[in-house]
Amino acid sequence: MSKPFDMELFLAAVLTGSHATRQRHLRQATVIQAEIANRWQRDTPWAWKKKHVVWFLEHRLDRHSRLTRYYYFLTMRLLARRLQKTWVFNL
């Protein structure tokens, strides 16, 4: 039996800012993780490829406001930094 993935522990090294900002990033990262896991059965961020993240940004957030997409984009940048990836996203 494996333990569930702990997103808070995963992002602890790169989270900065106020408590509310850190909580928002954690909440959004958990949503991103759940959506990617549901679509591609990739449970941890280490298994993600850029196409998974781009799919989330383009297809799961297409009906959200521009500001919401921007906040998710900021969370994606934190995830990429934590994964030490050089992913570049177009807004």
Rank of each mutant, 00 (worst) to 15 (best):
W55C: 02
L57S: 05
F5Q: 03
V54Y: 02
A80P: 06
L61A: 09
W87Y: 11
I36Q: 02
D43P: 01
L11F: 04
P45W: 07
W40V: 03
T44H: 06
R77M: 11
T68E: 04
F56C: 01
H64E: 11
E8K: 15
T21M: 07
R81L: 10
M7I: 15
D62C: 13
K49F: 02
W40S: 09
V53M: 10
R60T: 02
K85M: 15
A80T: 10
S65D: 08
R69L: 10
S2P: 13
V88G: 02
L61W: 09
V53W: 00
W87N: 10
R69H: 08
V14H: 03
R66K: 14
Q28W: 06
Q33Y: 00
G17A: 06
A13C: 00
K49N: 11
Y71N: 14
D43F: 08
T21K: 05
R42E: 07
F89D: 09
R24H: 07
A34H: 07
R66T: 09
R42T: 08
Q33C: 08
I32W: 03
F56S: 02
W46F: 09
R60Y: 12
T30I: 02
G17K: 11
R82M: 08
T16W: 00
V88R: 15
A34D: 08
F5Y: 11
V14N: 06
P45D: 06
I32N: 03
F73A: 08
E58F: 00
P4A: 11
N38F: 04
L9K: 14
L91W: 08
K3E: 13
R69D: 05
K51A: 11
Q28F: 11
A37Q: 13
V31G: 00
D62T: 12
W87K: 04
R42W: 01
M1V: 09
R69E: 10
S2L: 10
Q41W: 00
Q33H: 01
K85W: 08
F10Q: 09
F10T: 05
L79F: 05
L83E: 04
P45H: 09
V53E: 04
V88F: 05
R42L: 15
L79R: 03
M1E: 11
R63A: 14
D62K: 12
L83S: 02
I36V: 12
W55Q: 04
D6V: 07
Q41L: 07
R66S: 13
R27Y: 10
M1I: 08
Y70H: 15
S18Y: 05
W46Y: 12
F73W: 15
R27D: 06
K85G: 01
L15S: 09
W40H: 08
Q33K: 14
M7L: 04
H64Q: 14
T44N: 02
W46V: 02
L61K: 10
E58N: 14
R77A: 03
H52Y: 07
R27E: 10
V88P: 00
E35W: 02
K50V: 10
G17S: 11
L79Y: 08
N90L: 11
W46E: 14
R60K: 12
A29S: 13
L78K: 15
W46N: 13
R66I: 07
Q41I: 00
A37H: 07
A29G: 06
P4E: 14
H25I: 06
L15I: 05
V31F: 05
R24Q: 13
R27Q: 13
Q41V: 01
L26F: 05
N90S: 15
L61P: 10
A12T: 07
T30D: 12
